[in-house]
């Protein structure tokens, strides 16, 4: 594959593949895995290869490599058989022949729906939630920044998640239904 074409492919699929790999093995391993996947793509694919094939190739390569990483992870105090089993079950949800997660990833209106749902939260709760969710701040730090008690922050977070969970559960039910109609 020529350098120009792999650049184009990288440009187009980087975000999606990074998201996919991060879901499987976390950010730092994920970055390594997609490097390898794009490299293999350059090595093995032809310039005129169909885009859908290239995409499928990337997903497959990332999936296989990630599975390998999970299987060879060593246990620690916080990572034991349960952790590994969860990672493997999660990998199974993201297996390349399961259409749903991939369609969800490409579904921009789903993303917009999530943003819209967050905006529906009452002002203070929304502020707390966004600080935690979008900026990864710890509850403790949010309490200090906003000058409220840790308990209040925790209560906001709990209620926000509860609301979003209910709100999006309904949405995902519709989504998985649509996916099953289109692809089965």
């Amino acid at each position: 594959m020529s350098e120009n074409i792999i650049k184009e492919i990288f440009e187009e699929y980087y975000s999606q593949m990074l998201f996919y790999a991060t879901r499987l093995v976390g950010k730092s391993d994920g970055e390594d895995v997609i490097q390898t996947a794009f490299f293999e793509c350059w090595k093995r694919m032809k310039d005129e290869e169909n885009k859908e094939h290239i995409k499928a190739f990337l997903f497959r390569t990332i999936y296989t490599r990630s599975l390998n990483i999970i299987k060879h992870r060593s246990f620690s105090r916080t990572y034991d058989e349960s952790g590994k089993d969860i990672d493997l079950k999660r990998a199974d949800y993201y297996r390349p022949d399961n259409d749903e997660p991939i369609k969800n990833m490409e579904n921009i209106s789903l993303r917009n729906n999530i943003y819209a749902a967050i905006e529906e939260l009452p002002a203070k709760r929304r502020e707390v939630f966004k600080m935690s969710y979008l900026y990864d701040l710890k509850n403790k730090d949010i309490a200090i920044i906003l000058g409220i008690s840790l308990k209040t922050v925790e209560a906001h977070m709990y209620k926000a998640l509860k609301y979003l969970r209910k709100r999006l559960k309904y949405l995902t039910m519709i989504l998985s239904y649509c996916v099953s109609i289109f692809f089965n």
Binding site: L18, F19, P101, N104
Partner: peptide, 18 residues
Amino acid sequence: ESLFRAEEIYNLGKYSRY
């Protein structure tokens, strides 16, 4: 499935960072 779907949705909301 419902757990991993919830987790996917949760992370899709942070898609812009990817």
